[in-house]
């Protein structure tokens, strides 16, 4: 566990010691504010709960995009700069490396979510929302963002540079995102399967309305663990490829 924390701590420090972290913060907060004003509040009267639901809907997109940007560099950048050799020749398991990297990106995205709390606070000042709704919405933002991080971390593990990792991570994430749309176009049993596998829609919507289902939490955790373990296998396999 201490090495997972060690890797996470160094990575988190790297986010803040370079321009990357601040650019992601600034861009995410700016776009979040814009979407909140333009679409969540909008120009027609709405219930506060609906405004909050829309805020989480747009926030999920930002959480996923930020997740891809955060994760694409985690391993690919180390390969490009050659620092990965230090990690590969140290007494560190592939699992410690992957979970440490993942943890750093999740902590970073948690800070990002905390910084967006002023928007629900604005709703509270002018309306009425339940804390349960707020908590379930933020929970799903963390889960969907962490899923995008895990998917893109896998892309980073199998890519030789950040650009390829970014493109691959985006492609994988979009694939899992739009599966529910594909589900409408196919027959049973694939429609049900695709709807279930999609990281948005069925699993996301209840949270954004304040409903927490354990099955949905298990789904997101499964996606995260599945892609993290795929990343572990990809890192372990590179010794054999040479």
């Amino acid at each position: 566990m201490s090495k997972v924390l060690l890797i996470a701590r160094r990575e988190l420090a790297a986010f803040f010691n370079t321009w990357m972290g601040y650019i992601i913060f600034a861009a995410a907060l700016f776009i979040n504010g814009l979407l909140f004003n333009a679409f969540a509040i909008g120009s027609t009267p709405k219930y506060s709960a609906k405004v909050l639901e829309d805020f989480f809907y747009f926030g999920s997109g930002i959480a996923m995009v930020a997740g891809v940007f955060l994760a694409m560099r985690l391993l690919a950048e180390e390969k490009q700069s050659g620092t990965i050799t230090l990690l590969y020749t140290s007494p560190l398991t592939a699992r410690q490396l992957i979970y440490g990297k993942f943890l750093s990106a999740v902590v970073f995205s948690l800070i990002l979510h905390v910084l967006t709390l002023y928007l629900p606070a604005l709703i509270m000042m002018n309306g009425k929302i339940s804390m349960g709704h707020l908590a379930s919405g933020y929970l799903v933002l963390v889960l969907i963002g962490s899923s995008a991080i895990a998917i893109s971390l896998f892309a980073s593990a199998i890519s030789s540079n950040q650009l390829i990792a970014g493109v691959t991570g985006s492609a994988f994430t979009v694939f899992f995102l739009v599966l529910w749309m594909v589900a409408d176009k196919v027959a049973a049993p694939f429609n049900e399967l695709f709807t279930y596998l999609s990281i948005h829609h069925r699993h996301f919507t209840p949270f954004s309305q304040g409903l927490v289902h354990s099955a949905d939490i298990i789904y997101y955790l499964s996606v995260i663990v599945f892609f993290l373990e795929c990343s572990v296998r990809a890192i372990e396999a590179r010794r054999w490829r040479g």
Partner: peptide, 19 residues
């Protein structure tokens, strides 16, 4: 294999803990 954003001492501290 150097992390450019770190100082010499902080880098060696990190490596020592890693090892």
């Amino acid at each position: 294999p150097l992390y450019n954003e770190m100082t010499t001492r902080s880098y060696l501290n990190f490596v020592a803990q890693l090892k």
